[in-house]
């Protein structure tokens, strides 16, 4: 095939009718093809989706109090396991600890994130190139965003305790 033809495509639909007609045909063909997807292929797609969502969050941090780390953790577990308790067994943690973590009733310890990095390294092998340290980066990014979005709450109280006496003398 002559690659010189690959310079551009005008792919716009000429009319609403053409778009609708093509959409119906395409959707039917896609639904037929989807029936043949294996569980492994679906799992791979979900893991790639999670990776892309995490990368997007790291590139475009959102300054609010939402718990993105636990959101991503929940998606990760649901992509691989049918029950959260199975993940807890594989991570050598108790289901209670996991439940508290996912429901934001406790913070993840370093050891948990390190285990998660090891787990991810294995889960993403043969799926895509996943940087396991993204878990740590998401966790700290969320802390930064949470702290900065709440600065009006903590700053007035703490500001009273801070002095620059020596510096101001100079």
């Amino acid at each position: 095939m002559d690659e010189s033809i690959e310079h551009g495509v005008d792919s716009r639909y000429h009319s609403k009718e053409e778009q609708e007609s093509e959409s119906v045909k395409l959707m039917q063909a896609r639904l037929d093809r989807m029936k043949n997807l294996s569980k492994g292929q679906v799992r791979s797609a979900k893991l790639v989706q999670l990776k892309l969502k995490m990368e997007n969050y790291l590139k475009n941090p959102v300054y609010d109090s939402h718990n993105y780390f636990t959101d991503f953790l929940r998606i990760y577990i649901d992509s691989i396991y049918s029950k959260h308790s199975e993940f807890a067994v594989d991570m050598n943690i108790t289901p209670v600890f996991l439940s508290q973590l996912i429901n934001n009733h406790r913070e993840p310890k370093d050891e948990f994130i390190m285990k998660l990095m090891i787990h991810s390294e294995k889960a993403f092998a043969n799926v895509c190139d996943f940087q396991e340290e993204n878990w740590y980066q998401v966790y700290f990014q969320e802390k930064i965003c949470d702290t900065m979005s709440n600065r009006e709450k903590w700053k007035p109280k703490l500001e009273k305790q801070i002095k620059l006496g020596k510096l101001l003398e100079i």
């Binding site: 495509v9 792919s11 639909y13 093509e22 395409l26 896609r30 989807m34 997807l37 292929q41 679906v42 797609a45 979900k46 790639v48 989706q49 892309l52 969502k53 997007n56």
Partner: peptide, 13 residues
Amino acid sequence: VEEFGELACVSLK
């Protein structure tokens, strides 16, 4: 894929 996961589709004509 980021938006639609396992249902994702890219099309052109």
